[in-house]
Amino acid sequence: MGIINFQGKRNNRPIKKREPILVSDYMTKKLITFREDQPIEDVIEVLIKNKISGGPVVNNNNELIGIISEGDCMKQISESRYYNLPIDRNNTVGKAMVREVETIDGNMNILDATNKFLESRRRRFPIVENGKLVGQISQKDVLIAAMKLKGNTWK
């Protein structure tokens, strides 16, 4: 009995080299930022209106100088309400923000960023290039990236 369906020599398929999925592919570039001299009440209104949990604080040169979160704002409210006082208009972002901010490199693989989120227990990381704020990656951005990877190899 002979070979019935011989189609010739099969060529080896070229192995496609997968580009790593980078933080910069999923980071948010249009950011809501805050200034050091902004009143806390203004920040709270922006957080509520835009349904965000915090944001970077920048100076006039768009350099990252801190980060403000809902928790930072809640501390200010707690202190004023404890003493039954209105929120002091002199309570500014500069007094409430965290100044030591951990950042992520935009060229980092998204899965490495996932591990950084898990280790640090942070909700967001700013991305800085040449001293300027260029974006921010959140846990939700990482989840979006993971869903796009679904069915692929995780390399």
Rank of each mutant, 00 (worst) to 15 (best):
V46L: 15
P56I: 10
I87A: 01
N59A: 09
I3E: 11
L143H: 05
A113L: 01
I104V: 07
P20A: 06
L143Q: 08
R89G: 03
S69E: 08
I52M: 13
E19M: 15
L143S: 07
N60T: 09
I127H: 00
G8V: 08
S69F: 11
T103G: 02
N60A: 12
K95E: 11
N50F: 12
C73W: 03
G151F: 05
E45C: 11
N5M: 13
G8N: 07
I144N: 06
I48N: 07
S120T: 06
V43C: 10
G135F: 00
R99A: 07
K132H: 03
I137S: 02
N5L: 12
N60I: 06
E129K: 03
D112A: 03
L64D: 05
Q76C: 15
N60R: 09
V43H: 09
P126R: 01
V23L: 02
N152W: 04
N84V: 13
D112T: 01
Q7D: 06
N12D: 12
K148G: 11
Q76D: 11
G151M: 06
N109H: 09
K16H: 12
N152T: 10
V43P: 07
T28C: 12
T153N: 09
F34K: 08
W154I: 12
I127P: 01
L133F: 02
I68W: 07
L85A: 13
D112G: 02
E70V: 12
I137E: 02
N84T: 09
I104G: 00
D37V: 13
N107C: 04
T92I: 08
N60S: 13
R122C: 04
D42L: 12
E119Q: 05
Y82Q: 10
A145V: 04
P20S: 10
G151T: 04
G54S: 10
D25Y: 07
R35Q: 13
T114M: 07
G135H: 01
I137V: 11
E70M: 11
P126Q: 01
Q38W: 13
S53N: 12
N90Y: 04
E79I: 14
P39C: 14
K155V: 06
Q139W: 09
Q136V: 13
D42T: 15
R122G: 03
R121C: 04
I87W: 03
M97G: 03
D141K: 04
R35M: 15
N130I: 02
Y83V: 12
I4T: 15
I3N: 12
D112L: 03
I137L: 08
I68Y: 05
K9Q: 14
S78R: 11
R18K: 15
M27K: 04
L64G: 07
L64V: 10
N12A: 14
R35F: 12
N50S: 15
K9I: 15
L111C: 01
D42V: 14
N109S: 06
L31T: 10
E63N: 09
I21P: 06
M1Y: 09
E129R: 05
L143C: 08
S78A: 15
I48H: 10
G131N: 02
L118M: 09
E102M: 09
R122D: 04
G8Y: 06
V134F: 02
A145C: 05
K155C: 03
I3V: 14
E129I: 04
Q76N: 10
I110C: 01
V128A: 00
D105W: 00
N130S: 05
V58F: 05
A96W: 03
L22C: 07
K148S: 09
V101I: 09
V57P: 08
E45N: 13
V23P: 02
K51I: 07
E100I: 04
I15F: 13
K95C: 10
